[in-house]
Design a binder for these strands. Sequence first.
DNA 1: CTAGTCTCTCCATTAACTGGAAGGTCAAGG
DNA 2: CCTTGACCTTCCAGTTAATGGAGAGACTAG
Lengths: 130, 130
Amino acid sequence: MKISEASEQSGLRVKTIRYYSDIGLVAPSGRNDAGYRQYDKTSLQQLIFIRRAREFGFSIPECRDLLGLYSDKARSSADVKKIASTRLEDIRKKQDELQCLHDELFHLVQNCRGDDRPDCPIISNLAEMK
Amino acid sequence: MKISEASEQSGLRVKTIRYYSDIGLVAPSGRNDAGYRQYDKTSLQQLIFIRRAREFGFSIPECRDLLGLYSDKARSSADVKKIASTRLEDIRKKQDELQCLHDELFHLVQNCRGDDRPDCPIISNLAEMK
DNA sequence: CTAGTCTCTCCATTAACTGGAAGGTCAAGG
DNA sequence: CCTTGACCTTCCAGTTAATGGAGAGACTAG
């Protein structure tokens, strides 16, 4: 199939697929006479795999690793679990940070009258040294 | 004060302060004879303000807006509240996404034996079309 | 006077694409 | 046969918010 169909099937944009091809992440299965990229079942699977992994927040280098593991029939599940667990930790940390942020900002918004007067705890707070 | 002291006082790196100066976000109060950037109390306050706002996840354009509101003695607290509320909504959305991600990935990690065998639900799941 | 630490500007690089220009290819319609 | 439009190609530039480094000027201590 051509790139536009691979795009539809994978849920990735044409530009993105070309980009992945450029950086050597997912190579097309071949090229036709006109030089058009061709994608077969395997390369399409890889594209889908990458899209999903990216949605999970795995970086491109991590995706590269995972794709290697994905293709490697001899790898242990422990190898994969290790990468995924690290990513899970990242998510938990990010969640905590976001929660702090949310609480603090929510507090500020709550305490701001939001009227015509200039007094505003949000501004005052941001200006504080912390 | 010179840029390195402004850096210490504000918690921003020297490079970052120069960058803010370049993009016209926070201009130094002046330059000395040697062309060194000088920061006074007001410009330092602005740097601190920006650092805090950035930590809250406000983008540079948003920081620019907020800084305008910060300096504008005539602005209403409603203007500020509006920007902050939008940001709060962004945070909530991000939290939800992160929660979904966490649950899904946690489930996968839980179900992976993490042993020497190649069978791995994480890999299988990533390879699935969704 | 010199060594070391600032500081300056300018340029390149980062992540992961995205947009656009200029040009080649292909199928359908007139 | 020709044209129109939808694809496809490569290459170059831009995005965000800095960061790193080169090369050169300024300042301070010994």
